[in-house]
Design a protein around this nucleic acid. Structure first.
Lengths: 226, 226
DNA sequence: TTTCAAAGTTAGACACGGCTAACATGTCAA
DNA sequence: TTGACATGTTAGCCGTGTCTAACTTTGAAA
């Protein structure tokens, strides 16, 4: 009863991990939230949760949502580690842009062995972050914590460094990338318009106005924090 | 009705290709031969052949065996191309030995996109052969012909170069590799014992005696043929 | 020409992972 | 406290790809 999770099961575990570690998330995760995230019907989710519980990866109670067990969390982190290392590998070794890596990694993460991923890790020099700035769990499958904060929580004006861009949408990533907005880039938060207005930032002395949606995807650290 | 073949379907197409291009193969391939090669039951094969026929990849008639259609052949070659390029990639870029590459490639071949494989191909400098000396179909999906002959067809004594080692068994490959028997290695066929006896070869002036089984896996070219 | 073993197919089952339709439960607002 | 509506589950279906058991066909030897 403890076989390797199927590709589908891995996707559920990843979704569960992401939803339960989201900024404002509760302990237990909704059936609906999982269904929405994976674009599946709710009954499909119910049935997979029961199956994952039988495998000891999820704790689940009818009408009460689900949570990862310690084992489930480990499996989720194993997949996330694979996903992010593959992203770095595609980016650095094969010239993929950061907007292209996600979809390819989404398929490969279910096919690469633990051995292969460790060799990729070594070939890359044991990177800590993927091309989007997402932290890569180490071989011990613990998630590194990330001390960056949301751009919208900064008091303008302020010089910050972009640490992480929390989007997987390739159109968004292309648009940001063309403007130099990527992890490591130094930017200046100039102004935050009230009433959910845009954020004005400056990068290389060029002004860019970002809607709140986009701005909230940027995780930054004040320059003097180092 | 012309979707991308499933991972299973790809395995059947590869098997069909291998069996129908084997040295002494007939036009049509047995159900049993496929079942044996894939370690599946015969009824499973019958049912998949019907499905592949419906997809236009295989021509099949009850009790008459099966053959690839032009489309099926193309799909088979696409998978073989992926498999062999992945093998080269693992070997050259990630330090895999030639006895390790097959199993990993067997899983990855179903997950890599055409785009990724083309980038790997370019990163490797468009190799013509995989680590076992098997020819890699080009982007146009045509199989390069291979002018090497079986070691057992050579008249000893004769200096030859090993061109290809037709085994996927890692124990066999390790044993051969430890003795320097790999594509590119120059060897001397010293003697062929009669009555299905061993082949005596010399490599770096060291004598090695190979059973017919092993010897028949070696494809070579006489040194003066270049 | 007959027969019989090997090869092939059909029938029917199962696990997996989806789905829709219908029913059950929870929760918030009145 | 009680609806009403959002959320969740159950029931039952489907397609894929596998299996075993039972039956059919083929083809080669007698």
């Amino acid at each position: 009863m403890n076989r390797t999770p199927s590709a589908s099961a891995e996707d559920y575990l990843k979704a569960l991990y992401a939803l339960s570690t989201a900024p404002d998330a509760s302990e237990r995760v909704n059936t609906k939230a999982i269904a929405d995230r994976l674009s599946l019907s709710q009954p499909s989710v119910t049935s997979m949760l029961k199956s994952l519980q039988k495998q000891g990866l999820v704790s689940y109670a009818s009408y009460r949502g689900a949570a990862l067990t310690a084992d489930g969390r480990t499996e989720a982190l194993r997949v996330i580690r694979k996903h992010r290392l593959i992203e770095v590998f595609l980016h650095r070794m094969l010239g993929y842009s950061w907007s292209e890596v996600h979809d390819e990694a989404e398929r490969l993460e279910h096919a690469v062995s633990d051995t292969l991923i460790d060799r990729m890790d070594a070939a890359l020099g044991f990177p800590d972050f993927d091309p989007h700035g997402d932290p890569i769990p180490g071989r011990d499958l613990t998630m590194r914590s990330h001390d960056a904060v949301c751009l919208l929580e900064i008091e303008p004006p302020c010089e910050v460094t972009i640490k992480r861009v929390m989007s997987q949408d390739s159109a968004v990533l292309d648009w940001l990338g063309q403007r130099g907005i990527r992890p490591g880039a130094p930017i200046r938060l100039v102004h935050l318009s009230p009433f959910d207005g845009p954020a004005e930032i400056a990068i290389d002395d060029r002004a860019i106005h970002l809607g709140r949606g986009l701005a909230s995807m940027l995780r930054v650290r004040p320059v003097d924090a180092d």
